[in-house]
Design a protein around this nucleic acid. Sequence first.
DNA 1: CAATATACCTGGATGC
DNA 2: TGCATCCAGGTATATT
Length: 286
Amino acid sequence: MPELPEVEVTKLGLEPLLPGRTVKKVSWSSKRLRVPMPRTLLSQYIYGSAFISIDRRGKFLLLRMVNKSVLVIHLGMTGKLSAVSSDLPPAKHDHLRLLLDNKTELRFNDSRRFGSISVWPSDQASLLERKLSDTVGVEPFSRKMNADYLLQSSLSRTQPVKNFLMDGKIVAGIGNIYANEILFDVKIHPQAPANSITRSGWNKVVASSRKILKKAILAGGSTISDFLGTSGKPGYFQLQLNVYGRKGKRCTKCKSSIHKIVLAGRATFYCPGCQLFPDTVPKKQG
DNA sequence: CAATATACCTGGATGC
DNA sequence: TGCATCCAGGTATATT
């Protein structure tokens, strides 16, 4: 579910609610997430402390506490964070509930449990940074995301450019939906080898990534089946999708039928009329 | 090292 | 109605 835009929308939703609030009670489910719930650390560092700020790194949310510990949350495929009245009965798949000092509760709900929660005490700040820099690539909105970097990183990569774009260690936050949409926007075939993309191609990818991710954030993210923002509102970017999920439908630009293939096990959609391999000379259309 | 396969889960859609 | 099968926004780990 959540790619960079959905995680950013979640962050923006929490920003007016969390900073300044103290955690009065911590409750968890008995199920394990991708990693076991860090119960001891939650009791030790999150309980009794107050939130100070929220950062996003790739698809990770970093909830920083006054005591300098950090609660790191990844939404996986089906994770949702919401802030609701503590009177509302807990829902199925609520795995972590943090009761705040204003009778609201921050709830992490995740049916598939591919999400993860970790706690990093203040004395492990450098460990957290190392872990993040090892696993999270450049942020699409940062200056480090540029044609030089992508060209350099892709030199030894023969894999399809779509898989390369989705590699979180290269670029942070671009998942299946947005990789499909970005490649449609820049008219590059998803199967083109990463190391066949020219500098000017990468320049387009950089600009398009920012454009599309920004639009998606403004639309509140994409709600394909179940993404909801922190206040329970769905996103609307799915209404602007050009290729994702549109197998057999007409291309919005050239009316060709959208194709669906599988790359690295992920559904891949593209327009055979618009999206070409870099060395393909575009055919003149009569 | 790079690329691909697998594993981790639940639930909704689809087909018989 | 029930049941089997397939598919889904991600990513760490194993394998080739």
